[in-house]
């Protein structure tokens, strides 16, 4: 059963919408003035953290936030359609089926939230071909691990690029994606995970962000998105 979006999140979503809308009403100069006076980091440079790809922050703005949220929406469309189809195909059972149902509902809620925050600027849902991964339990599980881990890494990569006022939305989603990732990894690997840390529900001390283009090429390599 999908969660009704709480009052708090409704407010957050409204705030995000308004934040995204404001650039349309303002002149460019007004926008810059708001960005500076409003406080918060206005970093023009990149963030270089040892061992990680350089995250080009770009200029934080309402329109960049919109672009980022649309990118998130694409990933949420992908995940939600994958889980919808997997549940419908009927190849899943037991805890895998339960995982698929619960996570489907979560991803659908994420889609609804992002669409509502983006309003008319929400991108449309593309066509997907999941290439049999929704009809086979083992392939479903393996694909889910990749999708959820990638979702975590995508949000981590984009979070510092968002204006802080838009960030709560991403933060409330990314931890849930991480829970999903942990959950499916446990279904696959418990109780001893083959003795390999890479198989653990929490495989590393820290999760690593991916840049947008790294996420895009990972997604493209699945071939799931048609056109």
């Amino acid at each position: 059963m999908s969660d009704v979006i709480s009052v708090e999140l409704l407010d957050s979503r409204t705030a995000v919408s308004e934040a995204l809308d404001e650039s349309r009403a303002s002149t460019r100069a007004d926008f810059f003035r708001k960005a500076i006076v409003g406080g918060g980091a206005f970093a023009a440079g990149g963030v270089l953290i040892a061992g990680l790809p350089s995250i080009a922050l770009g200029q934080k703005s309402a329109s960049q936030d919109q672009e980022i949220l649309n990118f998130a929406l694409l990933l949420e469309y992908l995940e939600s359609e994958f889980y919808v189809e997997a549940v419908d195909r009927g190849a899943l059972s037991g805890e895998t089926l339960e995982f698929a149902r619960v996570v489907r509902d979560h991803e659908l809620a994420h889609v609804e939230f992002l669409r509502s925050a983006l309003g008319n600027n929400a991108r449309s849902k593309p066509q997907f071909d999941f290439k049999g991964t929704t009809s086979d339990a083992g392939m479903f599980r393996a694909t889910s691990v990749v999708l959820e881990d990638t979702g975590v890494q995508a949000y981590l990569g984009q979070a510092p690029r968002l204006r802080r006022q838009t960030l709560p939305a991403a933060v409330s989603i990314v931890s849930v994606e991480a829970r999903h990732a942990s959950w499916i990894r446990r279904i696959v690997g418990k109780p001893d995970y083959d003795g390999r840390a890479a198989n653990y529900p929490a495989p590393a001390v820290l999760d690593s962000p991916l840049t947008r283009s790294q996420v895009e090429s990972r997604v493209q390599s699945t071939g799931f998105i048609q056109g």
Binding site: L156, V174, V176, E177, R179, V205, D207, P209
Partner: peptide
Amino acid sequence: GRILTVEAR
């Protein structure tokens, strides 16, 4: 953020 997601896991 990188710690947050690990705690969620």
